[in-house]
């Protein structure tokens, strides 16, 4: 029984891998950038790995590099980390039921809910021959491993990268554009998609490049709540079979 379950996981990891390749590309390089920054502060690859294992947040870890200096207060760290991750508060709302069916793995799924993993979980559906909980878990673990590997590489060999990698982080932007286009082509959900783009763009212009995320999330929630009647019709129209 135990062995059959283990073989199930092997299959789940194999099935999930192709879906995670875009994140592999992005995380290796964004993770590398974190490793380089952390190493420049005087922390070697073991520290970078520890941080990526235990924290696992892109912009959160970039920010946290600044905490490793004398005189930064812990309350200040908590507040700044909270603000940079504030969008994550809303992600779980879409996954309450799916994670609820995942038993012991639920805690790890919540821990590993980054932007990229969230987006993948929302648009992918487990293949028929793989149990959903194992598939979702495999996606989350793959992404986490890429992130850890990227930060280790950056801390060990960041200076040795033989080509100019400037701009490679566009892989992440391109990933979100691709997911956006996929959703759009699937039909339905176009109204909430537009609400997301338009309100974030408007509030980015209004609030500037640093403090627009929380206002954007609030604006999105309000638009979704007030437009509920129309949006629910729009969602019904969707012909896609995606779980979210």
């Amino acid at each position: 029984m135990k062995q059959r379950r283990r073989r199930g996981y092997v299959r789940a990891f194999r099935a999930a891998f192709p879906y995670t390749i875009p994140v592999l590309t992005g995380y290796l390089f964004i993770g590398t950038a974190f490793g380089v920054m952390f190493q420049e502060k005087g922390y070697n690859f073991l520290w970078a790995i520890l941080m990526s294992v235990l924290v696992y947040a892109g912009s959160g870890q970039y920010l946290a590099v600044n905490f490793f200096a004398p005189g930064v207060g812990f309350l200040n760290m908590i507040f700044m980390t909270f603000m940079v991750n504030v969008r994550h508060i809303f992600y779980g709302l879409s996954l309450l039921e799916r994670f609820g069916r995942m038993g012991k793995k639920r805690l790890y799924m919540i821990f590993s809910l980054t932007d990229e993993t969230y987006s993948l979980l929302c648009i992918t559906k487990a293949p028929k021959d793989v149990p959903e909980d194992q598939f979702l878990f495999a996606v989350a673990v793959w992404d986490h491993l890429y992130w850890i590997a990227g930060s280790a590489i950056g801390a060990m060999a960041g200076a040795l990268i033989p080509f100019n990698a400037k701009g490679i982080d566009f892989a992440m932007t391109a990933l979100f554009i691709v997911i956006f286009v996929e959703q759009w082509l699937a039909g339905g959900k176009r109204i909430p998609a537009m609400i997301g783009v338009v309100s974030t763009a408007a509030l980015r212009i209004l609030f500037g490049g640093e403090n627009f995320v929380l206002p954007s999330m609030i604006c999105i929630m309000l638009c979704l709540i007030f437009g509920r009647r129309y949006i629910e019709e729009d969602i019904e129209k969707g012909v896609d079979g995606h779980a979210a």
Binding site: R87, F90, Y91, L93, S94, L95, L96, E97, D115, Y118, S119, C122, I123, M172, T173, F176, I177, I179, F180, Q183, K189, R190, P192, A193, M194, I195, G196, V197, S199, T200, A201, R204, G209, F212, V213, S216, M217, I220, M221, L224, I225, R228, I231, E232, I235, A244
Partner: peptide
């Protein structure tokens, strides 16, 4: 909340596109 759970992903993905371009 069930409704928001369904409507949020497309909106958040739109937000993330803009967020990457901030």
């Amino acid at each position: 909340i069930q409704y928001l759970g369904k409507a949020l992903p497309p909106a958040v993905i739109g937000m993330l596109v803009i967020y990457c371009l901030k």
